[in-house]
Amino acid sequence: MFKGVYTALITPFTAEGAIDEPALRRIVNAQIEAGVAGLVPVGTTGESPTVTHQENIRVIGIVIEEARGRVPVIAGTGSNSTAEAIEMTREAKKLGATATLQVAPYYNKPSQEGFYRHFTTIADTVDLPIMVYNIPGRTGKNIETDTLVRMANHPNIVAIKEASGSISQMMDVIARLPEDFAVLSGDDNLAFVLTSLGGQGVVSVASNLIPSRMVKLVDQTLQGEWAHAREAHYKLLPFFRALFLDTNPVPIKYMMHRAGFCENSYRLPMVPLSEENQRSIDALLTRYGIV
């Protein structure tokens, strides 16, 4: 169902901290014009922990309105509360979301059975395709492959954004899940690796700023143009690494600000980059011909 580059959109804020709707609409159109396969609003990169539930749904609505059916919109409506995830997913479906991104419940660190019941309960309650989001570095606990295999039996659980950082786990997931179950990288620096191993692409942070380059990299990999894809991967590797100079989404949001897409505005506890990291990123953007 999912293949290619799906951009994990930033949520632009005004200097006063409100959602910057005009900036978000401009970003959506730039993404679609660059050829991305789909858009993923209000994930980690969209600062989901610091927007209210009402703002979460409003951002999803803006993206759906501006996309106008041109690309799928995978709405970030996850929560560590199953009831809250269901409530927001229902709202996203009413707005016309194509699918939903559901992060593994965080902080409360459920058992594997708890993971299974959380995702399948959402899938039973709201008839919308689910992309599971496994990111143990943020949530505190890994969704094991055995659990994912069980969940994949549900017709509404159709994909995973795999951000465990473990190539061994990625291979295990690809090998054991049904062929029609999409496995996408949650890390730009592993997009080439996971896709070359049989995955379907990436939910990308980098594509906020360099969508056409990410589309080309993933398309070349999917088409088996290994030499070209590998060359593109290594050319972009310094860019991917720069995304982790500070906590995501601070570096990519600063990059987007420097490129003229948005204000350099965050919500606490996220804070702007240090001057040293700003200088490093400014030099990188100049090297890539972005600013």
Score class of each variant (00 low, 15 high):
residue 1 M to L: 13
residue 3 K to N: 08
residue 3 K to T: 14
residue 10 I to F: 00
residue 14 T to A: 09
residue 14 T to G: 06
residue 14 T to I: 09
residue 15 A to N: 13
residue 22 P to Q: 07
residue 25 R to M: 08
residue 25 R to K: 14
residue 26 R to G: 14
residue 29 N to S: 14
residue 32 I to S: 03
residue 34 A to Q: 05
residue 34 A to M: 13
residue 36 V to C: 05
residue 36 V to Q: 05
residue 37 A to T: 06
residue 41 P to H: 01
residue 42 V to R: 00
residue 43 G to N: 04
residue 45 T to K: 04
residue 50 T to C: 03
residue 51 V to R: 00
residue 56 N to Y: 03
residue 56 N to V: 04
residue 59 V to C: 05
residue 59 V to I: 14
residue 64 I to T: 06
residue 66 E to L: 07
residue 67 A to C: 07
residue 69 G to Y: 02
residue 71 V to S: 10
residue 73 V to Q: 01
residue 74 I to G: 00
residue 77 T to D: 03
residue 79 S to R: 03
residue 82 T to Y: 10
residue 95 L to M: 06
residue 99 A to F: 01
residue 101 L to V: 09
residue 104 A to S: 12
residue 108 N to R: 06
residue 113 E to R: 12
residue 114 G to K: 01
residue 114 G to I: 07
residue 115 F to I: 02
residue 118 H to Y: 12
residue 123 A to I: 04
residue 124 D to H: 07
residue 125 T to N: 07
residue 127 D to L: 01
residue 127 D to C: 03
residue 130 I to R: 00
residue 131 M to N: 08
residue 131 M to I: 08
residue 132 V to S: 05
residue 132 V to K: 07
residue 134 N to Y: 00
residue 135 I to G: 06
residue 137 G to W: 06
residue 140 G to D: 07
residue 140 G to V: 06
residue 140 G to H: 01
residue 141 K to D: 15
residue 141 K to H: 10
residue 143 I to P: 00
residue 144 E to K: 04
residue 147 T to R: 00
residue 148 L to K: 01
residue 149 V to N: 08
residue 160 I to V: 15
residue 161 K to D: 02
residue 162 E to I: 07
residue 163 A to K: 08
residue 164 S to C: 10
residue 169 Q to M: 10
residue 175 A to D: 11
residue 176 R to L: 12
residue 176 R to E: 05
residue 178 P to M: 11
residue 181 F to H: 07
residue 181 F to P: 03
residue 183 V to K: 09
residue 186 G to I: 06
residue 188 D to I: 04
residue 190 L to K: 14
residue 191 A to S: 14
residue 192 F to G: 09
residue 198 G to P: 12
residue 200 Q to N: 13
residue 205 V to A: 13
residue 206 A to N: 10
residue 208 N to F: 03
residue 210 I to L: 15
residue 212 S to M: 13
residue 218 V to W: 04
residue 219 D to E: 15
residue 221 T to H: 10
residue 222 L to G: 09
residue 225 E to H: 15
residue 237 L to R: 11
residue 242 A to L: 11
residue 244 F to M: 09
residue 247 T to L: 02
residue 254 Y to H: 09
residue 255 M to V: 11
residue 258 R to M: 04
residue 258 R to P: 03
residue 258 R to C: 11
residue 259 A to P: 06
residue 261 F to S: 06
residue 261 F to G: 01
residue 265 S to Y: 05
residue 266 Y to S: 07
residue 268 L to T: 11
residue 269 P to R: 02
residue 270 M to H: 12
residue 271 V to R: 13
residue 271 V to G: 08
residue 275 E to H: 12
residue 275 E to M: 10
residue 277 N to R: 03
residue 278 Q to M: 13
residue 281 I to E: 04
residue 282 D to G: 02
residue 283 A to M: 12
residue 284 L to Y: 01
residue 286 T to V: 08
residue 287 R to T: 15
residue 289 G to M: 08
residue 290 I to S: 08
residue 290 I to V: 10
